[in-house]
Amino acid sequence: MSRPLLETVDLKTHYGGTRSLLSKPKPLVRAVDGVSLKIQPGEVLGLVGESGCGKSTIAKTLLGLERETEGAILLDGFDVGGRDPAEARKVRSDIQYVHQDPGAALDPWWRVGDTLHETLKIHGVSDRAERQARILEMLNAVGLNEGFLRRYPHELSGGQQRRIGLARTLSLRPRMVILDEPTSGLDLSVQATVLKLMLDLRATYDLTYLFISHDLSVVERLCDRVAIMYLGRIVEIGSADQVFSAPAHPYTRALLESAPTLTRQDSGQVIQGDPPSPTRRPEGCAFHPRCPMAQADCRQSVPQLAEVSDSQSVACPYAMPGQVRPAEAFAS
């Protein structure tokens, strides 16, 4: 296997937990709690989970907007972790981000063209002609014309705002793009065209995507591999085919069964309860209070990811009977 473009080793990002003299101690939030990921060049890795599971914190940590508490981040084999945010952004400029709500990411008082120029200025492209050339190239790539540069954000539709968001990010010539819920809030017909555009752009510019979403049907059609997160940890990771056709972790199965399909799902167990808050993370496997197959040892120790096939790893000893022994999974 080739060298991964981006690798994280046991990445942890915790918030709070500090005590100061006069204020109340803030609860410790383990937003990301030991995530190891390898993203190969050119692949689309989906990161799926419910709200509060730490998806967006991973994105912020990778970008350098949050500082990791522990663990390593390797970009192209080089260690880029452990730096303060300003420096981290510099060394990680190959990683860029498309905002979840690109409308909110555009200044309402600025014309789109000015915003796009400013982005490049901040990143040190001082020659106006070069900026203009790059911007026009990217506008063209996302299917918009020069006229959009003179428009204000409110004059754009939701789909056009996403396109501008993509153009803005791509004008920085990143190698890896983190897409945070890129289709949320879009209508079905617009969502389809935006997804198609993202696949086309990946092919044209050799991009690698980390695709954060809670929409399983979108992830299934767009991603090569998919990682399922629950309360700061990855509970299952594997090729999209494998995970969607043979989900192993009980949480993955519950997620897939809960996604509304075009036929009425009368049978099938709906998972009960709400995702617990990361401040009150259950002991052991975080999923055990909602898990239909929880055993005594699930309450005590945290199961580790273990391979169940070439292209699938699961953090549950009872997921695949006979394949992972409990003793093996709980060894940490």
Binding site: S189, A192, T193, K196, L262
Partner: peptide, 17 residues
């Protein structure tokens, strides 16, 4: 019809309207 064809479950190729 076209809206249903946009549904990820219904289309093999990503289309749109």
């Amino acid at each position: 019809g076209m809206l249903m064809a946009c549904h990820p479950e219904r289309s093999t190729e990503i289309t749109g309207i």
